[in-house]
């Protein structure tokens, strides 16, 4: 991908579909599996991560000339950590119930591999505008998938989606809300994506 041909629409397309961080690149699986016990939590986590991703992509791109090559991970840690903390404080102040629900995975966004990967692979070598849209694209792609994952797990484990009851209570498969269920459902989603992608393996 040469910088000449790259544009913001390409970034969006790649982020959402062709290089979707969850199902194609298989990044950031830790929070994906843990917080997607309900659709609402998935959506909230997706938005939160996207915000941090966009901000850090922007700043890493702006500061890319200043970040030393060999110690760049330290630079990432500082920048990503700062934005995570700022966003966390914002969330604590204005949406405390979501903060409660997502728990420890809010601060763990500071080590979310999606953000690090995009910083390493993209933000340090491209300009600010493209980096922002890379963040937006990846963010939308990520949020989309984990919301779907959250919805599926919520339907199977509790019979509701976003709080609306779909399946009568008593017919739920509670393992969907636990780690094993999450692993399997995510595996199926990635498999479906692989099938759609025409067999492009990681």
């Amino acid at each position: 991908m040469s910088e000449k041909k790259d544009n913001i629409f390409r970034r969006l397309y790649y982020g959402v579909l062709k290089e979707n961080p969850t199902v194609v690149l298989c990044l950031g699986l830790c929070p994906t599996l843990a917080v997607t016990t309900s659709a609402k939590n998935g959506l909230a986590m997706g938005i939160f991560t996207s915000v941090v991703l966009i901000l850090s992509n922007l700043f890493i791109s702006l500061l890319r000339k200043l970040i030393p090559q060999t110690e760049r991970i330290l630079g990432f840690v500082v920048i990503i950590g700062t934005f995570t903390t700022l966003s966390q404080l914002f969330l604590q102040a204005y949406f405390p119930d979501i903060n409660e629900a997502l728990g420890i995975f809010i601060p763990l966004t500071a080590v979310n591999t999606v953000i690090y990967d995009r910083a390493e692979k993209y933000a340090v070598s491209h300009n600010a505008a493209l980096s922002i849209f890379d963040g937006i694209g990846m963010g939308i792609g990520y949020t989309l998938i984990i919301t779907i994952l959250g919805a599926i797990r919520e339907i199977l484990a509790m019979g509701t989606v976003f709080g609306y009851r779909l399946i009568p209570a008593g017919y739920s498969i509670s393992i969907a809300a636990l780690a094993p269920g999450g692993f399997i459902i995510l595996a199926c989603i990635i498999a479906i994506a692989n099938k759609i992608n025409g067999g492009r393996r990681l």
Binding site: C26, F183, I184, L186, A187, C188, I190, A191, I192, N194, K195, G199, R201, L202
Partner: peptide, 10 residues
């Protein structure tokens, strides 16, 4: 085939 790679590991 769709499960080869990451999915089967999950």
């Amino acid at each position: 085939q769709p499960f080869e790679g990451v999915p089967i590991l999950l």
